[in-house]
Design a protein around this nucleic acid. Structure first.
Lengths: 199, 199
DNA sequence: TTATATTAACTAATGATATTAGTTTTATCA
DNA sequence: TGATAAAACTAATATCATTAGTTAATATAA
């Protein structure tokens, strides 16, 4: 295929992801990555458009994996169980791949087409999973925004050690999802009985 | 006071915060900050322990302000209104000071005493505000963790352009808080009638 | 008022980094 | 076998953070 058998992009991203997970996203420099790959740093420009380009590709690489684990967690599940399943998959990914997860959210340009694409796929998955809650009109989008906020917020704070260690984090997490789902049900009741609550 | 009338730490942090808000946290370099302050970059070491020291002090500076606006929003409020008040204050701070807000969460060392202190004060405020919900035992801590996750997640995703622009973000946000509060009420009902739901 | 001590500024130097330009090597394909 | 294309390389530059050592200014003590 290629006129020369060097590294391929996947190898580069895999190495970068490993570095990010073990040492933190900010420790990835072209110099350190090149050293890990046994090449000189300018050679990386054959695979990636400088440091910003690497960060962007790493973000897409991470989002692809996140979508994958969430999708697989969702199959065969429905209703509350499905929401829990994708949520656990999300948080588990963030825990197992802290640096890569970080990369998905610190992309140089969030408006990038490729990133929007995968991000949209994840949102679509969430919409499908929440379909069982039979949300009318805009409500589905609002609820997906809420679920994303909660998942990302929990993952991010946990990663940064923002929570004390007094209480089991898994309990907090499951309770948070349950509370959110109970809230959706309760709000639905309200909107059926009363026209407009107070919002 | 001082044997020489140079800059003081507050001026340095104020300038850094302005830079962070207008250009992003990562654009703060000792070189660029020094230029803004009309000094040479090594002079900054008289005020701050290098770049990591600057980032840490900026984090504390931001957390102090965040605690302040949240505290002031809470006075005279109670129950759901109080939760909404501190939540709006939180999100408003993140919107008005995107770079400084970022700094509060990307401190070099989250375990730092000073950061833990202010962070703890914010948690205490949230606990007091949620006191009206009469949560028993560990529940209060779990709920505060949940609220923080919501707030940070929403603020962070909004800042990174993670949400589409189809729907009003303020509506999503208020709905999210309402859903969470409705969930707390619903969960409370359950735990009163049933011994252990399924969790 | 004057001298001293303290502090904040400075210059100079070093090492690491990203990035660009231009060159060499090597595998594939005609 | 030879041309091509891709991926490595070397060399060079600019920007940083950081350290060491120096100079200047000011509050306080004499």
């Amino acid at each position: 295929m290629s006129p020369r058998n060097g590294l391929d992009l996947h190898t580069v991203l895999q190495a970068a992801a490993e570095m990010a997970d073990s040492q933190g996203l900010d420790e990835i420099t072209l110099a350190s990555l090149a050293q890990k790959l046994d090449i000189k740093s300018p050679s990386l420009y054959n695979h990636v458009n400088g440091l910003p380009g690497l960060r962007k590709k790493l973000a897409v690489y991470g989002l692809d994996q996140l979508l994958d684990v969430m999708t697989r967690a969702a199959v065969g599940q429905s209703g509350a169980a499905a929401v829990h399943a994708i949520s656990e998959a999300y948080i588990s990914f963030a825990r197992t791949h802290p640096g890569l997860y970080d990369a998905t959210l610190r992309a140089p340009d969030a408006a990038d087409t490729e990133i929007q694409k995968v991000g949209g796929d994840i949102v679509d998955l969430a919409v499908r999973v929440l379909h069982a809650y039979d949300l009318k009109g805009d409500a589905a989008i609002h609820v997906v925004r809420g679920l994303r906020s909660l998942l990302h917020g929990f993952a991010s704070l946990e990663q940064r050690g923002g929570f004390g260690l007094l209480l089991d984090l898994d309990v907090s997490f499951r309770l948070l999802i349950d509370t959110f789902l109970a809230g959706i049900e309760a709000m639905k009741q309200n909107s059926e009985t009363i026209a407009k609550p107070e919002l």
